[in-house]
Amino acid sequence: MFSRVFGKPKQETSNAVATLDKLNETLEMLEKKEKVLLKKAGAEVEKAKEFTKGKNKKAAIQCLKRKRLYEQQIEQLGNFQLRIHDQMIMLEGAKATTETVDALRTGAATMKAMQKATNIDDVDKTMDEINEQTENMKQIQEALSAPIGAAADFDEDELEAELEELEGAELEEQLLQPATTAPAAPVHVPAGRQPTRPVPAKPTPEEDELAALQAEMAL
């Protein structure tokens, strides 16, 4: 439907741009003519004033007539400019619409091509291949990590029982070890001071008798 209404989008857009350029040139030409006519109309007014001062009524009226003719042309040029502005607005709107439709058409064609290149069957097939490769890799890893040779014949239960015996023997050995006494901490003596010797205590009478008895036995 869009192709029937707008034809070829790129060609129509190019034609619209060329037409807008032409309308802009025409509009500038009309504005220049309007300025010239306004200047001429003003000059006729000044001439009419001069003739009025000189009591030349007939010449003054002729100036006012020419001013009226210039004003009619100015009004006509204003109408032309209004029509051109109206057509430019319509063309700019049509150009924007055509470009929008062209962009939408391009987007739809791109989406259609992408969907055609990646339909749902291709996606399902790709996912199946990925799952299959993942499963194969898992099986390969399991096969590589399995023990081989003599290590494959070891009984895990027997190894765990042996480990428990070793742990029990280690614990029993730790319990049987005698507790070690901590060394006495050294007494710190300040510099310049010597420790005083203890004064021997005076022997008691019982100690004197014991010493005398030991002396007699020695003799």
Rank of each mutant, 00 (worst) to 15 (best):
I61Y: 02
G78P: 00
V123Y: 04
K116H: 06
L104V: 03
V123N: 03
T98Q: 00
A96W: 04
K67V: 01
V123I: 09
G93T: 06
A60C: 01
A109I: 02
T110Q: 11
I74L: 05
A109V: 01
I61G: 05
I84D: 01
K65L: 15
A103P: 02
Q87W: 10
Q73K: 10
Q81K: 14
D122S: 14
G107S: 07
A117R: 05
D86V: 09
A60M: 02
R66F: 04
T97G: 03
Y70G: 02
V123K: 07
L91Q: 06
Q72H: 07
A108F: 06
G93R: 12
T106Y: 11
R83Y: 09
L77D: 00
A113F: 03
T118H: 13
G78H: 02
A60I: 01
L104D: 03
E71H: 05
Q87A: 10
M88T: 06
T98E: 00
I120H: 06
F80Q: 11
D124R: 15
I120N: 05
H85V: 11
H85S: 15
G107P: 00
Q87T: 08
D124K: 15
N79K: 12
R68Q: 13
N119T: 00
D86L: 13
K67F: 00
T97W: 14
T110W: 04
L82V: 05
L64M: 04
M88I: 04
D86G: 13
L91W: 07
A60E: 01
N119G: 03
K65I: 13
K67W: 00
D86P: 00
K67I: 00
L82R: 13
I120W: 06
Q115W: 09
R83N: 14
L82E: 12
R68M: 10
A117T: 02
Q87P: 02
M111V: 12
M114P: 03
Q76Y: 04
Q72S: 12
I84V: 08
D102F: 01
M90D: 15
M88Q: 12
V123L: 10
K95E: 04
T100F: 05
A113C: 02
K112Y: 03
R83H: 10
I89Y: 09
E75G: 10
I61H: 04
Q76A: 13
I84Q: 01
A94I: 04
R105A: 13
T97H: 09
N119E: 01
M114W: 12
I61S: 07
K112D: 09
A96G: 11
I74N: 02
Q87Y: 10
T97E: 12
M111A: 15
R83Q: 14
I120D: 06
D121E: 14
T97N: 09
I89E: 13
D124A: 15
K65A: 13
H85C: 13
G93K: 13
T118W: 13
G107K: 08
A96V: 05
E71Y: 03
